[in-house]
């Protein structure tokens, strides 16, 4: 669970990324790749990062698929 720079509440659940909307509902977005979300972290600049079980790191700017930056170079051997 993490809160981004603009107050967006994000949570990782298996293969899905959730964002709490203004009605208190969690909107879930499936990740395109196979990794499961292990943990989320927020930097001092408010950027949210997700560590996946398939050794990828995602940078997230909201739960919409186009806002998930996949950093393929981040593979941990």
């Amino acid at each position: 669970m993490a809160v981004g720079a603009n107050g967006e509440v994000l949570a990782g659940e298996g293969h899905e990324l959730g964002e709490l909307d203004s009605l208190g509902q969690m909107r879930l977005t499936p990740l395109r790749a196979g990794g499961q979300i292990l943990t989320l972290a927020t930097g001092s600049d408010g950027r949210v990062w997700a560590l996946l079980s398939d050794r990828e790191v995602l940078q997230i700017a909201g739960s919409s698929p186009e806002n998930i930056l996949r950093l393929k170079a981040r593979q941990m051997e």
């Binding site: 669970m1 809160v3 107050g7 509440v9 949570a11 208190g24 969690m26 927020t42």
Partner: peptide, 19 residues
């Protein structure tokens, strides 16, 4: 539990699907 903007704290509640 995570600290949000505007003097809020958010927390998740396992088994309830609630925040």
């Amino acid at each position: 539990i995570a600290s949000g903007s505007d003097e809020t704290l958010w927390f998740s509640r396992p088994g309830t699907d609630e925040f």
